[in-house]
């Protein structure tokens, strides 16, 4: 198993824990983004931190996007006074459509042997629609600029 395969496995395991915390049955792209921000020592993690996006900042941006999208339909997440549900007994096992797309897109950017963690992040940042681009936009993050920084990091690694 290559270093990159081990990284993907780690990201999926951590993404599954993030999905479980969210009460989500499947791992989605935003869970992968949280996972990337949680695993230190990679090119992808360096780019995120340089942009001020540690795990807490990403979580806050995602929560804001959720509240904002609910508010667009006149709904407040805080309006329901139920105690939060207990989490499921096991981390999520399935990948959702957004996570699959992120991997597909990321893997297109490099030859199989040259894939790096930054390619996974690049795949997530390619999405124009969905939770991640909306959360980043609401947080004032320039997604194209962030993707350019990821590409630069990859170029520096291979130089």
């Amino acid at each position: 198993m290559t270093v990159f395969h081990k990284y993907v496995r780690t990201i999926l395991e951590q993404g599954a824990v993030e999905a479980q915390r969210d009460g989500s049955a499947a791992i989605e792209a935003h869970h992968l983004l949280l996972a990337i921000a949680s695993v230190e020592g990679t090119d992808a993690h360096r780019v995120l931190v340089s942009a001020g996006l540690d795990r807490a900042a990403i979580r806050a941006a995602l929560d804001r996007e959720f509240a904002h999208s609910l508010a667009s339909a006149g709904v407040s997440a805080a309006a329901f006074g139920l105690p939060p549900a207990s989490p499921g007994p096991k981390p999520a096992a399935d990948m959702g459509a957004s996570a699959r797309l992120a991997f597909e897109r990321g893997f297109k950017y490099g030859a199989p042997r040259s894939l790096r963690p930054a390619h996974v992040l690049l795949g997530i940042l390619q999405a124009q629609f969905g939770t991640v681009p909306r959360a980043l936009a609401l947080a004032g993050v320039d997604r194209d600029g962030l993707a350019a920084a990821v590409r630069q990091e990859l170029a520096d690694e291979t130089a």
Binding site: E65, S69, A73, P84, R134
Partner: peptide
């Protein structure tokens, strides 16, 4: 569309 996605997540959590 984002509202629909958020409402589905909200409904699941509720």
């Amino acid at each position: 569309l984002a509202s629909v996605a958020a409402l589905r997540r909200m409904a699941d959590q509720l």
